[in-house]
Structure formats: C-alpha cells, structure tokens
Design a protein around this nucleic acid. Structure first.
Lengths: 230, 230
DNA sequence: ACAAAAGTGTTCACTGTACACCCATGT
DNA sequence: ACATGGGTGTACAGTGAACACTTTTGT
C-alpha cells in the first residue's frame, strides 16, 4: 500500500457481487439463474448480482442483494473468489466478488421465479452465460464439493426434516456419483450428528422411512476435531 | 448487476493487493513483512502491497508488485481472499485482495531486506500488524496447510535440490507438529514424484544425505487422480 | 401377488500409526 | 571413541470398499 497522500491518484473501480445460489430438489443439484432483462447481455443467462455500495462490505452487499432477490435472510453464504479481468464486463471496469449460497429450494417461491425471470437449472446442464459467470459456477461447484466433505453445510440444502435417502441423493448429486447405501449410511450415522425422529415420511415410498434432523448441538461438541462427512 | 446506464451511478473504490509471502529457512516457516515508512501506520508492521491499476487484473497487479518489491518473477502465487470491511483502511475505502506467495528464501537478498525495511518473521511470532493484515496471514497459513496436503507446492519453498530431512522439516514447520521419520518418508517416497540424485549434502551432517528433486514430469502423469502428500 | 423403496452385516484390502536400532562419518 | 544426523522394517488398528437379501406396505 502506498502513502496516504497518494491514495487519490490511484484508480477506482466498481465492485460487484455475484451469487451462485444452490438448491436441491431431491434429484438434482441446481443453481438459480436469471435471464437478464437489460443490457449488457439482455436475454442471456446470468447469476444474480449487484454493486457493492460505499457504505457496506462485500458480505453485507451480498446479503442485501440476496434478500432483495429472494426475500431470504439467514442463509448460508460464503465468499468464493474475486474475478478481476480487465474486460470481464465490457461496459466498465468491474471487479466481481463471487459468493456462493445454499438455500432450501422450497423457500424460493414460484412467484419469485416469475418476478425475476429466474429458473433453477441443473448443474449438469448449465447453459452459456454472460461474462465469466460460468467459470464462477464451476468454481463454486468445486468449492461446494470440498466444503461439504468437511463441514455440515449440505443440510442447508435440505428441509429441516429429511430421510437418509434424501441425504444420500444430495451427496450423490453434489459429487455426480453414486454411493453404496450401506457404506454411506454407516459413515454418516457414525458421525453422530443426526437425530432420528419418530416421524416417518410416507410419500416417497410405501413402507415409509424415518425422518432425521441435523443435531447442531452434537456437532458443536465435535466441531474442533475436524470431521470427515464423506 | 444493474443496467448499463446505471453503472455510472454506483460507487467506485480503490482496489489493493496485499501479498503474504512465505519462505522457509530450514527451520521455521516465515513471512516477509515490512515496517511501513509512511502513513497511515508509519513504523508498523505490514504486508507488501499496492494498488491495482485500471489496466491490469488483480493477478497482474500482484505479480507487478511482487516483482517491484522482490525482483522475483515466476513465483508461485494464488489469490486468497478479498477483504472488504468499510473501515479496514481508515484513510479511504479500499478493497484488498490478498494473495499468498511461496518463494525460496535465498532468492530474496539481504540487500532487498534493507532496501524495503523488510524482515522474515516466523509464523509462530507474527507481531501486531496494521489493518487486517494479521487476519490475512492467519488465513494464508490455513490455506497453505490445505494446499500443501494435496498439491506439490511445498517444493516452491525449498531449493531445487533438498534432502529428505529438509522436506520433513518443512512439512513440520507448516503444520507446527512433528512426524515420525519412517512414516513420513515412506509416504512421501511412495508417491513417486521425488528423484534421488547421486549427490550428497555434506554440511548438515557428518554422514551426509542424498539430495532429491521434485520430478515435475512424474507428477504431471499422476496429477489428475488426486494425490495426498500428507 | 407384486412392485418399490427401506433397512441391515461381513469380509477383505489398504492405509495410517506406533515404535527402536544400526550406519557412516567428522571431530 | 563418540557425537550427530542418516537411514531402515514390522505389527496392529482403523478405515474404506465391495457385495445381496429381507422387510414393509400400498396397489
């Protein structure tokens, strides 16, 4: 950093945040994309984003913008990476700080989808996108895989009550692979952060399967020692 | 992101890069810090940094600034995280993109240390620092630990030729722990990316120990399948 | 009765870890 | 001769991976 009296001579830039919002519909891992209704890139697919204001941090900006576009607060979000290529946005010099967010897909109402011209798109079929947004999604997918193996953030994508099959489907969707049911359940149950409920899910199968909850308290006790979820 | 004609109405900010430069002296993992010769924070410890110009990406800026301050090019560097608190720099709104870099400690000459009022400081004894620079160092240490377990970047901190003891000392310094010599060597040699040279190091011990080199070609063959170094 | 998902154990290979002594050489 | 770091093997426990059948119940 240079001397204070030189600060004014340096170049100033726009700071944007772009949010990679993941959701899970029980089958596929999806990202929430919007079709841009304005230039540049009108009609093209884009992430949700906006500019950071002078009186807010990027984290605060990301929270504000997500609230604006989804009405959701208190969602899991973390900074991913900053994209700084000179001409990534042809309209101006914009540094974009990408965030990735995990939401429960049912919290995002169909009305909002219409209102923002948004759609849930499977990560297996991400279309061409403006600027470097596809690169952002790729990186977010990568980071999600890393994180979900070591931290219990996958639960942010599931309802509060979920069956073990749903949990396995989620991990399979994230890693785009399949796991052996017995091995998966043994491992995930042995961690000891799932609480079995007395209630059964009765729609997805005839027999019905028990609901489980993520047990935050038990997790907090284990947290420091570093857990492998997968 | 908003419509193009609104771009001009958004706030513009200074973008800085700050570099966490790691080095290894055979004993301790160190960071290169400078004592600021200017305000704000004159006389305080600081990372090396500078402002990103309008005509360069942050990566390019980081490379330029590192070259400026160390004369070194072609060094390992990666973007770490962006620090965006409103008042992290009291003089102005500055978004700082932190980079971490790995250099061979002998490449940074003592003259440069004087010239920039710089010093190598053990990561075990990082002093109070300006702004959020200490937080940056903590995060960089964390990231280095993650990376070095999965990628062969530790070698960036060692001379081209190194002994297995030096390599073990490096990993021990990074993780601030000790490893069993036999287990460590078995694991690291079993990866098959170290090339034993005929030459021996004769200063550090009476018996002398063989030099090894990192074998880039062998690594590239194994790269895709994901290697665990530790 | 049958279809469809739930639930449940064992075996084996591999990996990680604990642990202690002899070797070569310069002084 | 001795001090110093270099170099080496084995046993055991824990983890990961492969693998198939029975149970429940709605239709």
């Amino acid at each position: 950093m240079s001397a204070i009296n030189e600060y004014k001579e340096h170049d100033r830039m726009l700071i944007a945040v772009d949010c990679i919002i993941f959701g899970f519909d029980g089958e596929d891992l999806k990202v929430l994309l919007i079709k841009r209704g304005f230039e540049p890139g009108l009609g093209k697919w884009s992430l949700m984003g906006g500019f950071v204001k002078a009186n807010e941090s990027a984290d605060e900006g990301a929270i504000r913008i997500l609230d604006l576009l989804t009405g959701l607060t208190k969602i899991y979000m973390e900074q991913l990476y900053s994209f700084t290529d000179i001409s990534r946005d042809p309209a101006d010099r914009v540094v974009s700080i990408a965030y990735f967010a995990l939401i429960k897909i049912d919290d995002y109402s169909p009305e909002l989808l219409n209102e923002h011209n948004a759609r849930w798109i499977s990560i297996k079929k991400v279309p061409a996108m403006i600027f470097d947004h596809k690169e952002m999604i790729e990186l977010a997918k990568e980071r999600l895989r890393q994180k979900v193996a070591a931290y219990p953030i996958g639960f942010e994508l599931l309802p509060d009550k979920f069956t073990l099959s749903q949990l396995q489907n989620l991990y399979e969707a994230i890693y785009e692979t399949t796991f052996d049911k017995r091995n998966f359940l043994r491992k995930i149950l042995s961690i000891g952060v799932l609480k079995k409920l007395d209630e059964k899910e009765k729609h997805l199968s005839k027999r019905g399967s028990y609901y489980y909850k993520f047990d935050h308290k038990k997790y907090q006790k284990l947290e420091q020692q570093g857990i492998k979820f997968i």
